[in-house]
Nucleic acid binder design. Structure first.
Lengths: 344, 344
DNA sequence: TTGTACGCGTTATCAC
DNA sequence: GTGATAACGCGTACAA
């Protein structure tokens, strides 16, 4: 431990620690020359104010937490990219927490983070239907929380989402327009509000086209590829759907594997569309039609809201009420490709 | 700010702060009953020891930094996944820093992190050929550093890599075996040691097959898809290679786009193979042959080394020298798919 | 313009 | 088994 502290630096300069401190904070008046001298010496000795100490003093960690289900996932990694960008611009640091869709871990993270370690939290929740009233306990504390994409409706916090209902409606309608009549809806977790919204869009699109909503066509899947392949093989064999609407990317991927295995021609025998952030959707065999969410922008928006609540950015309106929670809805893009078109 | 501190908690219990502190640290002897009473009250008042204060006291942040070029990237996001896993198991927190391949940012991060904010650093460097002697300055400090995948050879630190040379040799040999004679090598940054290793494997494989190494067949690319497409269109038109060895995934992706545009049949007209962590390589059109790196495991290894150096894990050997830097080499897998096979 | 002194919240050391 | 106290490193009110 050969790092130097403010006291030692002050001694070397024959100055008091307060003066040295001032040189870094820029605050109070300080002689231009002494300041330069201090900074020069600091550079030479490679001194930097200890953050733990500074943070303890002004009760700010200059750090935010990002809690997500997983990171090896196009959507979340891009969102984090956006968050990091904004955080860095504001001089903040970003801590990552992965729940792996484990509710207990989520609770543990949330609890641990309310001890001054971070100034705010951005999160996308696990899908567990458990009681999440535990969060209320923390909502009363001063640390702001922003949800993005996956959220708990019953928690009062700022939220960044996309127009899931409209997108789902449009995607389902697209399948119907292309001639599908037996469209399965693949979902991992029906309890998530986002899952509900997407399913509602699917339902309503069916209805408005005069097609019945059949409970059996809603397929519960998991996060395990192997498991999903099992499930879908059964579904494709028994139900013989002519359309697949996957609420998340990995379910479309599983569908592709199964179709390839079963020699089903995607686009012809069965049309597939899904929510996805896959940048190479057009390179798949066949190119995959997607509802593309603005993942990066969602991260940026979520972070901006958080920093606004942290007072780092001027309020959007003249309103200075820090407790107002913002709701932002971004638009997804429906990108039609071969998987829902078939042979041209 | 309605969070409570140890003093207030102590008052409410008619105890001293030391006793309360002990209840949490488990340390010294403490009456079972008082301890329980304290923990109960703590739970009720939702008290948690302030980490800034604890950290300041014992000079540990229980936090590590992960510096990577980007996160919206299969390889890095999986590696981070592995790192987070190990960190969490050790009760550590993970901070993410993205350089976006900007050398200045890398330097800035490294500098900022040496003020007690983190206890250790895991990083994959930018490709810049600049002078990185600045790192030496910090190497002397006590905070441990572990490189993974992309590293600076001249910096003495622990390193986790894969058998890049062997993989490259094998991949190139595979192309040659499949009949390729004009194989281009696509690279983003030739200055990286990893780039050099991979190119050497390519070179040596050519040589051992009696093929000449032609400087013109080494194509410098960038990180911009649009730009790479431009470059590759020219290359494919003028040089007319029958084989492509992409040193990173995104260059293979760009090649796919270009081949699709130019109506080149991948696998037949031109064979493509690359380093990649793409889980859906087999769903591409055509399925992409890859050298698959154990990204997750690399993250795990890097983190384990770091924690070993932090003294969190018992040393591997009986050797207690903390300054010994470890070198770990993991094996990549060569996975042959249609992109290098052509029509069966 | 600079120096002095205190407190941020915790925990280890020492005394009782 | 418990309480008082000092110190971690910094930043600011106050004094000079």
């Amino acid at each position: 431990m050969d790092s130097i502290n403010i006291k030692q630096l002050a001694e070397k300069l024959n100055l008091s620690t307060s003066t040295v401190s001032r040189a870094f904070r820029g605050h109070s008046d300080i002689n231009k020359e002494t300041k330069e001298k201090i900074l020069a010496m600091a550079r030479e000795l490679n001194y930097q104010p200890n953050h733990m100490a500074s943070n303890l003093r002004d009760k700010k960690s200059r750090t935010i937490a990002v809690i997500v289900p997983e990171i090896a996932n196009n959507f979340f990694s891009r969102a984090i990219n956006g968050i990091e960008r904004v955080a860095r611009d504001n001089g903040y640091h970003v801590q990552i927490y992965l729940t792996n869709d484990d509710f207990d871990r989520e609770v543990a993270f949330i609890s641990q983070l309310h001890n001054g370690r971070v100034d705010g939290i951005i999160m996308s929740v696990t899908g567990e239907a458990n009681d999440h009233s535990y969060m209320h306990k923390f909502r009363k504390k001063s640390i702001p929380l922003v949800f993005f994409d996956r959220m708990y409706d019953d928690i009062n916090a700022s939220k960044v989402s996309t127009n899931d209902y409209d997108s789902s409606f449009a995607a389902t309608k697209h399948l119907i327009d292309k001639g599908c009549t037996r469209i399965v809806y693949l979902v991992v977790n029906k309890n998530l509000s986002i899952g509900k919204m997407r399913m509602q869009g699917y339902k309503d699109a069916l209805e408005s086209a005069g097609l019945p909503f059949v409970e059996n066509l809603v397929i519960d899947c998991s996060n395990e590829l192997i498991h999903n392949i099992d499930i879908l093989e059964g579904v494709f064999r028994v139900i013989k759907p002519d359309g697949v609407f996957a609420s998340v990317e990995r379910l479309a991927i599983a569908s592709y594997y199964v179709c390839h295995n079963m020699n089903l021609k995607i686009g012809d025998d069965i049309k597939i569309i899904c929510f996805s952030s896959l940048e190479i959707a057009s390179l798949l065999n066949p190119p995959l039609s997607t509802i593309t969410q603005p993942a990066y922008d969602m991260g940026v928006e979520a972070a901006k809201i958080l920093f606004r609540q942290l007072g780092m950015i001027e309020e959007r309106t003249g309103n200075n009420d820090e407790n107002v929670s913002e709701q932002v809805v971004l638009q997804s893009d429906l990108v039609i490709r071969q998987s829902t078109l078939g042979l041209k």
